[in-house]
């Protein structure tokens, strides 16, 4: 049931929606444009020529710290979060279809992890490491803090994904003689694959852009979002926009790959 199209209400709402989209993307587009500012250009319009000077500057100059290292650390953390989130959330999601003792404890722990202010959880993790005599490090306590953000999202998405999964498929596989791992390999995972890509997308991008939980857990070596956050406070050239454009391009590429992969699979099945 749709309301009458082309009515006054339609145009008003469509206008509102268009404004919202402009609100959502407009500022981003402005910094994408400004990141191609000419060499003598500043942080605002007008554009003084068009160049890729500020992109080159990012990695050539030592003014911005170890951006290359931060980028590679962020990519590694993203991939590690992706893998751990996808695997553990798949199994946890499958488990949650049954009632089992402790399931609501796990569920509410996940919700807690989602709503607890990120930097505080980071504080707790960092202090925990100190207490047990470990040095916070981007790949240990850092990864843990990222997982505290990706795991709850992953589980919630698995719930939605499994909602459309018919348990009779697994029974049919068992009926055909398949054991647990065979059922998983030949039936459950292939059927759930588009949903698992979505979980993986969350796992990667949420980790890749994570700031608050990382601040007190990465130790000496920063991740890219922390470098960028530092830059917002002390860089006053369009290089700031260039790094923004650069990291957004990586995010959009990952999102694009995920969407294309999902739609190819869906198309093949219909």
């Amino acid at each position: 049931m749709k309301f009458s199209n082309r009515s006054l209400a339609f145009y008003l709402l469509a206008g509102f929606f268009a404004l919202f989209v402009a609100f959502l993307y407009g500022p981003m587009i402005i910094i994408f444009v400004l990141s191609f500012q000419g060499e003598s250009g500043g942080l605002t319009f007008p554009m003084r020529g068009v160049s890729t000077h500020w992109f080159a500057d990012l990695f050539a100059s030592s003014r911005y710290g170890d951006l290359g290292g931060a980028l590679s650390r962020s990519l590694i953390l993203g991939l590690a979060s992706l893998a751990i989130t996808a695997v553990t959330c798949l199994f946890a999601g499958l488990a949650f279809r049954n009632k089992f003792i402790g399931s609501s404890v796990i569920f509410y722990l996940a919700i807690t992890s989602l709503v607890v202010p990120g930097i505080l959880l980071g504080l707790g993790l960092g202090q925990l490491f100190q207490l047990v005599g470990l040095r916070p490090n981007w790949f240990t306590s850092g990864l843990a803090s990222h997982l505290s953000w990706t795991l709850p999202f992953g589980l919630l998405i698995m719930f939605a994904v499994l909602n459309r999964f018919d348990g009779a498929w697994e029974e049919a596989a068992r009926d055909a003689g398949a054991k647990y791992w065979e059922t998983l390999k030949f039936v459950t995972i292939p059927i759930l694959f588009p949903g698992l890509i979505a979980v993986a997308l969350f796992g990667f991008t949420l980790s890749y852009d994570e700031l608050q939980r990382s601040l007190l857990t990465v130790g000496a070596d920063n991740t890219l979002p922390i470098e960028i956050a530092n830059m917002t406070q002390n860089v006053t050239t369009p290089a700031l926009y260039a790094i923004g454009t650069f990291t957004s391009a990586i995010s959009f590429t990952v999102i694009g790959i995920a969407f294309v992969a999902i739609s190819i699979i869906q198309k093949r099945r219909n």
Binding site: A168, W169, E171, A172, I191
Partner: peptide
């Protein structure tokens, strides 16, 4: 174990595997 009993089940919802062709569905066992 299920599948080793000499029984086969036909499910109410049919439970055909949505990602497999008819040949692969039928030959799954």
């Amino acid at each position: 174990r299920t599948g080793q009993r000499g029984t086969a089940m036909m499910f109410q919802s049919y439970a055909l595997f949505p990602h497999l062709t008819l040949t692969d569905n039928v030959a799954f066992p």
